[in-house]
Design a protein around this nucleic acid. Structure first.
Length: 458
RNA sequence: CGGGAAGUAGCGCAGCUUGGUUAGCGCGCAGCGUUCGGGACGCUGAGGUCGCGGGUUCAAAUCCCGCCUUCCCGACCA
């Protein structure tokens, strides 16, 4: 029975591989500041792959990358009432600079709505300037009360998009486009993590937004994880910062804004969605290394054969690693590749080569097959596709198995203990939501047809 | 801030109840040898202000008092 990979270990629920994979095998480690994180090379490679996939889609949606200051004058953050209220408790504030007390403290960005709004106000003049679409890859700091490795660290890396549109309708369409074509697409098709997309309740809405759209995933233990959000900011910030333009009819108008982001939390979500007792299981489309060619023993020409095979696989467009460290024991090497979640492993040794074959092992299900040397490239391609589909299917069926259709608050409370409960929102309402909250549950999102999805969040 | 628990080698821990050789064990690390088709093994070795301060005692990792820190559950949250 595979134990759920949990990023916050409890004494009685601490998968053995947690140590190796998360803390030791190059994913993360605690840093000097409480709740922050150090991402080691392999973990960062996973994040870089996510960045690549997201960045391509963000650019396809027309946004361009920019960079804004890390430090934001405190007064900026205070201009939008709800935004301040939401973020004040978790701001890190810089009070000194150059050895002297600053006249105005600066906050370390918890998100960049305010500083970017300040510039949007300067940049925007005409409706012809719209839409204004920018994206920033950056680190942000939120002094959360309770950090959790990858899921909620004091400092985290993310992508935050900020846009201004001519009409409310344009803004909504764009927010939903990002949600669907960027976030959901990457999560489902690349990470193989099925997500529900829907609207947040007022209670769960982003501070300063009029509507928050979200991607909600279920981890292997049945808990919910918000993987990404896309907000409609209405005219809240544009009124607070004076983001005005001259309209088609010549009048002055306030812009309609959106903001959206996903963070290194996705790395945690990936671990908890697909990991098993032997370590990570990376979906092939995401994996920094898709195929590892393991030279089992360097004799009888196995070395050159493995090298040639790795070259062929790379030429076929796969991300390949050649492991020729034959002075390390076979078991050690194989276990390491499994911990790192490399989707497909090819073993080249004298035994295989004697019959003109190699071994192909899939990480997702452990299947081992002997494939002819000249069929290997084709077989690897098939195995990668199959593994990608299998991981998604597995996560989908787990989620479906743990989702119950209910109709009352009491039933939702019962059913959402280790999964999702789908309940009509009209049967829940703000009071029902508050009752659930008292039991540690929350409405993860509102789907079409008045369905509220209730779960226990990380 | 409320409720729990823990601080002993780089990491994970035992020892404490009932004070008493030189404070142990596993992993990791270094050297040598044997191994190498599923997390190798043997021998040797390096590595410690037992969280901090005070007290009791012939004697404190152990008992008492105070303090500090960290972790877990809750409130907050990408």
């Amino acid at each position: 029975m595979a134990r759920a990979p949990i990023l916050t270990p409890r004494a009685d629920d601490f998968p053995r591989w947690y140590q190796d994979v998360v803390a030791k095998a190059e994913l993360a480690d605690n840093g000097p500041v409480r709740g922050t994180m150090v991402i080691r090379p392999y973990g960062y490679a996973i994040w870089e792959r996510m960045q690549e996939e997201l960045d391509t889609r963000i650019k396809a949606a027309g946004a361009r990358n920019v960079y804004f200051p890390l430090l934001i004058p405190e007064s900026f953050v205070h201009r939008e009432a709800e935004h301040v209220e939401g973020f004040s408790p978790e701001l890190a504030v810089v009070t000194h600079g150059g050895g002297r007390k600053l006249e105005e403290p600066a906050v370390i960005r918890p998100s960049s709505e305010t500083i970017i709004a300040g510039y949007f106000a300067k940049w925007l003049q005409s409706y012809r300037d719209l839409p204004l679409l920018v994206n920033q890859w950056a680190n942000v700091v939120r002094w959360e009360l309770r950090p959790r490795l990858f899921l909620r660290t004091t400092e985290f890396l993310w992508q935050e998009g900020h846009t201004v549109h001519e009409t409310e309708d344009d803004a909504r369409r764009y927010a939903l486009r990002i949600l669907d074509e960027v976030y959901r697409d990457v999560m489902v098709r690349v990470l193989a993590v099925p997500v529900l997309t829907g609207r947040k309740t007022d209670r769960e809405r982003f501070a300063g937004a009029t509507t928050t759209w979200t991607c909600e995933a279920m981890m292997s233990d049945g808990k919910a994880l918000q993987m990404g959000t896309s907000h409609e900011l209405g005219q809240n910030f544009s009124r607070a910062f004076g983001i005005e333009f001259q309209s088609r009819t010549g009048e002055s108008a306030y812009g309609w804004q959106t903001s959206w982001g996903v963070s290194t939390r996705m790395v945690g979500g990936l671990v908890m969605a697909h990991g098993d007792d032997n370590g990570l299981r990376l979906p092939p489309r995401l994996a920094p290394i898709q195929v590892v060619v393991v030279l089992v023993r360097d004799e009888d020409g196995t070395g050159p054969a493995a090298e040639a095979l790795a070259a062929d696989l790379a030429a076929a467009g796969h991300r390949v690693e050649l492991d020729t460290a034959t002075d390390t024991s076979y078991g050690r090497r194989v276990t390491d590749w499994e911990l790192k979640g490399v989707p497909v492993r090819i073993e080249v040794g004298p035994r295989e080569l004697a019959t003109g074959k190699v071994s192909l092992i899939r990480r997702d299900n452990g299947d081992r097959t002997a494939v002819a040397l000249d069929q290997t490239v084709a077989s690897v391609g098939e195995a990668l596709d199959a593994a990608q589909g299998a991981l998604l299917a597995e996560a989908e069926s787990r989620r479906d198995d743990r989702t119950a259709e209910v109709s009352t608050v009491a039933e939702a409370k019962e059913a959402a203990q280790d999964g999702f409960a789908r309940v009509p929102w009209r049967n829940l309402g703000v009071e029902g939501e508050a009752e659930l909250a008292a039991a540690g549950l929350s409405v993860r999102c509102l789907l079409a047809d008045d369905v509220a999805v209730v779960g226990r969040a990380y």
